[in-house]
Nucleic acid binder design. Structure first.
Length: 484
RNA sequence: CGGGACGUGGCGCAGUCUGGUAGCGCACUCGGCUGGGGGCCGAGUGGUCGCCGGUUCAAAUCCGGCCGUCCCGACCA
């Protein structure tokens, strides 16, 4: 397997801006320098380059396995949706109307009805579900699709907010409200586990406030992650759609009692935005840091040779590479002769490779190799015999350590506000998550947003009683933050 | 969509104020020496200066319009 070099070919060896100095500039530079993505000619469009796509592929596989394990199957639905379909659910149209891309012409003919490029697939899928569902015996329908969608965004950033997005959208149908709610929460848990176990990102889960709810949903649940700059990122959502769509699209089935009733639906999505989260949560001044389970390359071997013993070192490095591959590790051997070892060290750190394996004349003499971990920079010398085993253990340690560090960061940046002044001070000076009681009204939610730019990220499942900091009325716990 | 900044080889920039025939660093190509934290020397390739129009003997430079990018707001996965 071979990915493009991060800096060779066309990119300049610029010094990466410090994350703490200008995190936005840092992010944009890193995306391009590490060859994750490149800008397209239409605003908000991006090519995801091989290395970036390899990360997405690993996320895809991980999620897909989890979906299959919870009984779901994959299918594919049309990209094009007639305008009339989109309009059937009132809230849904209103929510998406400002950002839908329309096809009005085909070849040289003007179309009779505008066709939407899907901004999400609820409506088109309902068309099929109406045809496919007749009896309670047809339920539940547990279908997922891997697809793209288009939303015409005003402000775009690679991975975080793009015009075209790759994602996965699950669309399920159930006989009862309870079952649909159960499914909604089950998939929220699947997302949470994927973030924690694979991306090493600790997310908070909970319910959205009504104003942040998905257009057309009864209830929206979310995974919120905290980025390195203290801002929150909505990283995946799961919606309980109730009967809103089944009524609008007239999906019905005969239940056990011979009654014709509308089923209950859910939808849930996880997009390439997660790659943005990965960069922002783990990245540092030296570049990316990819958790081993996600890393396209778990370990890169950098041979260190001098003119006289080049062939000997090369042979040893190749042998080592074969051993690592045989042990099932995703290893890469960097035999490039153009660059110095130091150059390669920097480059592989930029790309976030979890472990670097150095092998040079001194190591060959001592029958050892040097392991350097990306997350801590720690170096260790390991005898050649036990190398694959030690590496496997080390990768597990790195995976866990990255999760631990991210969790510590999140916890250290989650603060309780005792007064509105304190609330404002935290958001202005420290950012992060702020825990405070909310009286449940749109007024206080909006007031906070106007004053501080912070929004309710979620309402946790366990909420304590308290007093709203603004209105003084009784309230319950909400989590606030400035969001991406 | 409002406020601000910026568009010059692949990337980062200088030149614009004061018009005069485009330059630097890195990347890229070739050769040689190097190689344990972004090596060195030499020789090269590459740009109708975002687009359209205007002023002028002459425009990267002045004027007008448009497009795009980034930052700050409003809207969102």
């Amino acid at each position: 397997m071979h990915y493009e070099r991060s800096v060779r070919m066309t990119e300049a060896v610029e010094k990466l801006t410090k994350k703490s100095e200008d995190s936005s500039k840092w992010y944009l530079q890193l995306v391009r320098m590490a060859k994750l993505a490149d800008y397209g000619p239409v605003r908000g469009t991006f090519a995801i380059r091989p290395y970036g796509f390899a990360i997405w592929e690993r996320i895809q596989r991980d999620l897909d396995d989890r979906f299959k394990a919870t009984g779901h199957v994959n299918a594919y639905f049309p990209l094009f949706i007639p305008e009339s379909y989109l309009k059937k659910e009132a809230e849904h149209v209103e929510g998406f109307d400002p950002e839908v891309a329309w096809v009005t012409t085909a070849g040289r003919e003007e179309l009779e009805e505008r066709i939407a490029v899907r901004p999400t697939s609820e409506t088109i899928i309902c068309e099929f579900y109406r045809r496919w569902i007749h009896s309670y015996r047809d339920l539940p329908v547990l279908v997922n699709q891997w697809s793209n969608f288009v939303r015409w965004e005003k402000v775009t950033r690679p991975f975080l907010r793009t015009t075209e997005v790759l994602w996965q959208e699950g669309h399920t149908v159930h006989a009862t409200a309870e079952e649909a709610r159960e499914e909604t929460l089950r998939m929220l848990g699947v997302y949470r586990d994927c973030f924690a176990e694979t991306l090493s990102i600790p997310v908070l889960t909970g319910q959205k406030s009504p104003s942040e709810r998905f257009a057309g949903a009864v209830e929206t649940f979310t995974c919120e992650a905290l980025m390195g700059d203290g801002r929150a990122l909505q990283s995946a959502t799961s919606h309980d759609l109730g009967q809103n769509f089944s009524k609008a699209f007239d999906i019905t089935f005969l239940d056990e009692n011979q009654d014709r009733v509308h089923p209950f639906q859910t939808s849930w999505g996880f997009s390439t935005r997660a790659v943005g989260a990965l960069i922002l949560v783990h990245g540092d001044d030296r570049g990316l840091k990819i958790p081993p389970k996600l890393a396209p390359v778990e370990a890169v071997i950098v041979p260190i040779w001098r003119g006289k013993n080049k062939s000997e070192v090369r042979t040893e490095a190749q042998k080592l590479y074969t051993e690592l591959k045989a042990a099932g590790l995703r290893a890469e051997l960097d035999l490039d002769e153009e660059h110095s070892p130091g150059w390669k060290f920097n480059e592989h750190e930029l790309r976030g490779v979890p472990v670097r394996v150095e092998i040079g004349p001194k190591d060959i003499e001592k029958s050892q190799a040097v392991l350097v971990r990306r997350d801590t920079g720690e170096k260790e010398f390991v005898g050649r015999g036990g190398l694959p085993e030690r590496l496997t253990v080390l990768l597990g340690e790195i995976q866990d350590n990255m999760m631990r560090q991210a969790t510590e960061f999140r916890d250290a940046n989650t603060r309780h506000a005792g007064s509105y002044d304190e609330f404002k001070e935290i958001i202005a000076e420290k950012r992060g998550f702020v825990v405070a009681p909310w009286d449940g009204t749109l007024e206080t939610e909006q007031k906070i947003k106007e004053d501080t730019k912070a929004t309710i990220r979620l309402l946790p499942f366990e909420r304590e009683d308290g007093t709203d900091l603004i209105s003084g009325k009784p309230g319950k716990t909400a989590i606030f933050a400035r969001a991406y």
